[in-house]
Nucleic acid binder design. Structure first.
Lengths: 204, 204
DNA sequence: TTAAATTATAAACACTGTTTAGTAACTTTG
DNA sequence: CAAAGTTACTAAACAGTGTTTATAATTTAA
């Protein structure tokens, strides 16, 4: 049956067209300011067509989030390469924070916006970021196996590292450092210093 | 001139009526789902009237944020009371995290939402939270004066502590812990453990 | 008492996400 | 090949949104 296969391909292609448009618009204009009508206009289809391929705007966002996580994972694979576990943890932290700082709008929809999580049902696991999270956990257990960290529980360690990284990035992304009278440059320096300091603190 | 004074009082009273309605609706329904029309209906005025007292919805949110910070400061004053600076820092951290967990919607608009920061112009300081932030800085310098902390710079210390606290709360508020297969109860325990662990780490 | 200023609103504007009903094109069947 | 069935698409409508404007009502000042 070649026809139904071609139809399936067409369907996937259309889904791709929609997502590509959505990504570029979410990242340049933000999620709220991007309307289904704008996306439809960009791909030269009617707004209603989008609903034939995606349930609603949230599902679109969830899909975009998925691709954003693939990008983060690629970054990890490219930059977290040291054979020394402790050095790898350092690379991981800096890569995470820099990724957030360089892709603020993307970071927002990956880790800050409530909306995409509506696609994750109550008591269900959020699968979009499991790979990145496992990557962190793996890295931490490597360190802890060799007693390189002042943690005695991998999950607590993961929570701590993630919270520190996320705290620094998200306060920056949501402009909360306007509370400290500091310019952009000194804030960037302070963030890098805070993460360096934290890495020293957790070292056994 | 008693008349213009009464008018000023009336104006403030009206502003109060609007904000009170806005607060209760933002906290129960969330910012996005609360419409100017709903607020207007609640106070039995027309939607347009609200614009005679507040520039736009963002300014309303900024005002609500102000009151939320007063609440947080009251919490600090009530619970961060120890004479020992290190103990005070611990009280501060736990109070902050618990405040966030017990007032998720409020925490969201205080520290996570981008919208209210539009009221803070570029390169201007965000005044709504300066008191709380100063409170933290004061607490940290008290600790550091006595060499109780493994930090050598108060600003880095403040950044670090805030980031850790905020990271834990905000990942919870934005439901990102759905990445770890953990129920509500164990997450709460893990958060408290992570903050306890962090306090140990920074102790000199 | 009239003129000016203030206060409130109905209605409109330009949007939003989403659904429905209907059309045009393609696929399958007789 | 033509009729029937299926699919892909869209115009229009629905029910909402934040915000502005023109107008009416009330209050203050002259």
């Amino acid at each position: 049956m070649g026809i139904s296969e071609r139809k399936e391909r067409d369907k996937q292609e259309m889904r791709g067209k929609i997502i590509d448009a959505a990504i570029s618009m979410f990242l340049t204009e933000g999620y709220e300011k991007t309307s289904i009508r704008n996306i439809a206009e960009k791909i030269e289809y009617s707004p209603a067509t989008i609903y034939l391929y995606y349930k609603d705007k949230d599902e679109l966002l969830y899909e975009v989030q998925k691709q954003a996580f693939e990008k983060l994972e690629l970054e990890f694979e490219a930059k977290v390469t040291s054979s020394d576990p402790m050095e790898r943890l350092e690379q991981l932290c800096y890569t995470y924070v820099r990724f957030g700082k360089n892709n603020k709008e993307m970071y927002d929809l990956m880790f800050m916006m409530k909306a995409p999580m509506n696609c994750v049902d109550e008591d269900e696991t959020w699968n979009n970021n499991t790979d990145s999270f496992d990557f962190l956990v793996k890295c931490l257990s490597d360190c802890m196996e060799k007693n390189l960290l002042r943690f005695d529980n991998v999950m607590t360690a993961a929570l701590s590292v993630w919270a520190m990284g996320h705290g620094l990035v998200s306060l920056d992304v949501s402009c909360r450092f306007k509370a400290m009278q500091m310019d952009e440059v000194s804030i960037n320096a302070a963030i890098e210093e805070a993460i360096g300091q934290y890495l020293k603190l957790i070292k056994a």
